[in-house]
Design a protein around this nucleic acid. Structure first.
Lengths: 158, 158
DNA sequence: CTATTTCGACAACCACGTTGCCGATTTTAG
DNA sequence: CTAAAATCGGCAACGTGGTTGTCGAAATAG
């Protein structure tokens, strides 16, 4: 018996991880839609996170998301159209435009955090608290410090 | 202490799942590149899987990937350009064009399966065989039968 | 004061998704 | 057998989000 004496095919692992991610994100957005945010989409959530409660410059948002400043600018345009973000002149730097969340954007961000906690609790109830914690620990182990980065949104189409 | 007495914030869970997926897919494509397939990209791998060893019609590929037949047609165009797939007239149905993998496409598909097995073995060595199996079982539990679907590629930008 | 760097925007382009439409062909109904 | 309906694949137009290159304006280094 080798260390790999296991009949599970390797290709299932990525599919299960992706399905888990998708399940959470789908449920998040279904709940957000119920709570008054029907137009927000997964990529927008990551952008809201990148802007953060304190605001950021477009370049900074791009850096956090791992995309060019131009791409960040387009996403910010989109969020502004939807009423989640707004641009303001930076009084301290005439080149910068400070991107800030609107109250609606703050609301979406806060609700997302609450919903994610609820979803995790539901998983914990299904799997058992220790099992879920072990799943998280295991993923942290194999992904290393990259496990919590947010710049993973658009890498797929790289 | 409630059933959710756990200080881990819920938002980390999706990030860890995505990071795990990304880690595997990145390593797969790095290895594929080393083995003579430098131009293949994640979305192409899913499409190769959807075509399968026996070939399929463009409409069928679209159905398997959960996209329109036009989108499937474009992806097939791309795979044909790269030398991984080809179209042939279906002798039994004049409307259909049978999409088949070229030998190069078959090679990529076979190597992907081998590499995924190797990557899973590496995770098993790091985490322990039972722990990895439990991780997979846990994900199967929370995702249900959707856990192994392939139509999850482009849902993100939905 | 001048040179360099940085920021944000514009333009052009690519990848990949969508709908709507179409001709060709097969299938089904009468 | 023929006429109507359904299916297949491709074309066109468009949306979204990514890229690079360029540019003027503003901050910073010398």
């Amino acid at each position: 018996m080798s260390a790999t004496a296991d009949d599970r095919p390797g290709f299932e692992l990525p599919l299960l991880l992706l399905a888990g991610f998708r399940t959470l994100i789908d449920e998040l957005h279904a709940e957000l839609a119920r709570q008054g945010h029907p137009h927000i989409r997964p990529a927008h959530g990551f952008a809201l996170q990148a802007i953060g409660p304190h605001g950021a410059s477009a370049t900074e948002v791009g850096r956090r998301l791992g995309v060019s400043k131009q791409a960040a600018g387009k996403t910010i345009d989109r969020l502004a159209e939807l009423g989640y973000a707004e641009r303001a002149d930076d009084p301290a730097d005439g080149r910068r435009k400070l991107v800030r969340l609107t109250p609606r954007g703050m609301d979406a961000l806060g609700r997302s955090a609450v919903i994610f906690d609820e979803l995790r609790s539901r998983w914990a109830a299904t799997l058992g608290t220790g099992r879920l914690a072990d799943l998280e620990d295991a993923l942290r182990t194999v992904t290393g410090p990259a496990g919590l980065r947010v710049d993973t949104v658009s890498w797929f189409t790289s």
